[in-house]
Amino acid sequence: MNTQTDNKPIIAVRNLVKKFGSFTANDHLTFDVHKGEIFGFLGANGAGKTTAIRILCGLSAPTSGELTVAGFDVYKNADQIKKNIGYMSQKFSLYDDMTVWENIRFYAGIYRMRRKDIREKTADLLKKLDLEPVRDKLIAGLSVGWKQKLAFSIAIFHSPAIVFLDEPTGGVDPVTRRQFWEMIYEAASNGITVFVTTHYMDEAEYCDRVCIMTEGKIIAMNTPSKLKEEYDTDSMDEVFRKLARNVET
């Protein structure tokens, strides 16, 4: 949670535009995210969330605009950005045909962590998640809930400044979902900034602040409570429905 915030935002985006041919996927996005904040990036499929997240991760170049992520310029220092962030998505996270322990070692290796650190942190992690008994089991045999928790832990294993969670939850039971959010809270309280995209509006209620996108534009940005107050409703679902017209293009 954003108990203490630096004045300088950890993510600063000014007038981000991304075009694919004549199609504008991101249309002049401007926003800041602060250190330790849980920032929700919401919108329907096709709203432009994935395009923006790819740019923030240094995987795709913007058409125009000014962006710094973890203090690095996306045009000049994309490689530095990649080293200082973690990433997790529902679709791509862990290798099914590698064991729990191999997955941890693999990702830690990619981030060039020292062997001693890997060994120590792996032991801590397995203990914390109660995964010791299955450390040599293939990922394929784990439940969705465990995969999510492990994938998140691996995404922050190298202590990144920011972790990007691209549609991380969904489909798990309400208890498992809350255990996952508790992990997110813990990371945020340790100063990791959490940038989460989702199209499940009820997930938005767990964020410190959310930004809602439709058709490439930001149409609202505030705390969930303020948005619900503003739109005079008790659910983020209803806020979204009031904001977004269902336009088929």
């Binding site: 329907a44 969904g170 489909g171 509006m201 679902d237 979204f240 977004a244 017209r245 269902n246």
Partner: peptide
């Protein structure tokens, strides 16, 4: 309604 946005879900 899985994977469908809030507006379409309600509809």
């Amino acid at each position: 309604t899985t994977g469908v946005d809030a507006v379409s879900r309600k509809e």
